[in-house]
Design a protein around this nucleic acid. Structure first.
Lengths: 332, 332
DNA sequence: TTGTAGGCGTTATCAA
DNA sequence: TTGATAACGCCTACAA
């Protein structure tokens, strides 16, 4: 039975095979994957814990990982930490109890108390998007600093001189790297650190909206670099309410390259992350670790690409142009 | 060991319990959920297959279901059918092989060839959002017809008389129910069926954008009812490119109540689905079926609520007002 | 080429 | 109160 369904590890006489197949058909037999997992000591399941599944950036990232995992015959369990360390730990624990073969973690901001447990479990894991300080696990990251710098330089290239920054939570590493890149560009253009204005808030539209209202109302700035597209969409709405035109009065460049940026008015100029590659790389790294748990944890930093649209002052292309780095998993 | 960890079904002497606990600690013992599932014949896992995880509506719906399942100690497996019947079947099969205790299905458009297999498996299942013609399974649905009618009536109430409709694929039931509701309202206002213009396309922004460009360019219409928010966001962009003002020249009302509608310019007037309730109801129905597979499949139709914002001509509230039906799982 | 049996890690039943 | 043991369904090594 086993031999005919799995095609091995030894042969079956054609006549017997037919008999077995017939019996399977007749009894409506379905193999039990749980028993198989128990025996084989692998579940062909991977876990993914993200800070917030309702944030389109994480949704697109999850989708890319799912795609890559599916292609390798793995099923993906997705857990939503809701930006809460306790819930993050709960999910990690649940997944470990379910004997996932490996785990992806996009750490929520704040402490990441599940790390020791994760390490003790011996289950291979990989962090994504955000690195863990004393991690010890492979990480797959976007080139936040250079990307942010390129975005700010692009705004400078449009003749903007007074460029604010709206960023994510202060304890999120990539948010700070992006602020760093923005600072780099401004410093090189001769702006003093004391003249650089940064606003910190949650990722998500609401925070962007609030930051926009607070920072851009008085006309001090002729441009803003926003650390995430979601926030930038909120900023766009804030400008609208304030009667400030984009890009004429305030130009915007942001970061991530989510699909929605192609349909706002104006469409957003953004540094697009290579979602498909991020997913594939993450899966590849995890499989590496599963192959050889002793292999030293590799840090992969993937480049981001500028997608110039209307919000920075470039010509606004027709709605729905595909951001360069977002071909797979973006569709719609 | 089992008795101390699970607190039953029989007692353990305090002294023994302490010894067991100590051993657990010392050996770093972790219970194996797979073995447990095999023995118990339940995995505490539910499956969900949706047509397209990158569509924010399904993302928000998935999130609500995950929330409700998590609250009942179930883990949710999410599969992305990518609007492809074959892939949908693959996921259903994968989930059945993994011995999910129950399954949620949001059928992709077109045929749903996995139904016989699903039925034969004996695993309880529930359909969501879209009902299956000869289903036989419980369904949890929004009140599409009345919701759409209310939306169209609202546009009529603003004095609009020439109201087009942009809808989803022709073979998707809820899309047609929404078209039906829009027809109802127009007919009641004295519009002849021959004067009612409907455009059909995929759900998603791109389709809405294309439909908007095609249908609204020549100024024949002073309003449009759009069958999904995603499409409506595309329509908004199309109007912008055509130099048509919203709501002055063309008013918009749409359907779903996804979070992004609160941040567009103008913010979208929409019929908000009660995501939280949909999730809870779906889980409740599935647990019902699991309790008693013979219980007859109940069809739950939940009401949608009008969220009036700028796109229909109502005053545009500040960005980020929470759509009435979307409290849970919407955040941002 | 095929039948048989042991064991994966649990839980629950039976005997002590 | 506890120790021993069968069984869940699968895979595979071994014997025939």
């Amino acid at each position: 039975m086993s031999y005919v369904l799995n095609g091995g590890p030894r042969g079956v006489a054609p006549e017997t095979r037919a008999r077995v197949l017939a019996a399977i058909e007749q009894l409506g037999y379905r193999p039990n994957g749980i028993a198989r997992s128990l025996r084989m000591n692998r579940t062909m399941t991977l876990g993914l814990v993200v800070p917030d599944t309702s944030n389109p950036f994480f949704a697109q990232l999850s989708r890319a990982i799912e795609e890559a995992a599916f292609a390798q015959d793995y099923t993906l369990l997705i857990g939503n930490a809701a930006e809460d360390d306790e819930r993050q730990t709960t999910y990690v624990r649940t997944f470990l109890a379910r004997q996932v073969d490996g785990l992806f973690l996009v750490p929520a901001h704040g402490p990441t108390s599940c790390v020791p447990e994760l390490r003790r479990s011996g289950v291979p894991w990989v962090t994504l998007d955000r690195q863990i300080p004393g991690g010890g696990a492979p990480a797959v990251l976007a080139d936040n600093r250079n990307g942010a710098r390129a975005a700010a330089e692009h705004l400078l290239g449009h003749g903007r001189r007074s460029i604010a920054c709206i960023s994510g939570p202060e304890d999120v590493v990539p948010a700070n790297e992006r602020v760093g890149g923005w600072r780099d560009a401004l410093a090189e253009a001769g702006v003093r650190p004391s003249e650089m204005s940064v606003w910190h808030g949650a990722f998500g539209r609401r925070a962007g909206y609030l930051g926009g209202r607070e920072l851009l109302a008085d006309g001090r700035f002729d441009a803003v670099f926003v650390a995430s597209d979601e926030q930038a969409l909120g900023v766009l709405r804030a400008l609208q309410e304030l009667g400030i035109r984009c890009p004429e009065d305030v130009a915007i460049a942001s970061f991530d390259g989510i699909a929605a940026t192609a349909y706002s008015t104006p469409a957003l100029t953004t540094m697009a992350q290579p979602f498909g590659q991020l997913g594939q790389t993450a899966v590849a790294r995890l499989l590496d670790q599963m192959d050889d748990p002793e292999a030293d944890p590799h840090i992969s930093v993937l480049p981001v690409t500028l997608v110039a649209r209307g919000s920075c002052g470039c010509p606004d292309p027709p709605g729905g142009d595909a951001p360069a780095g977002t071909v797979e998993g973006a569709e719609q």
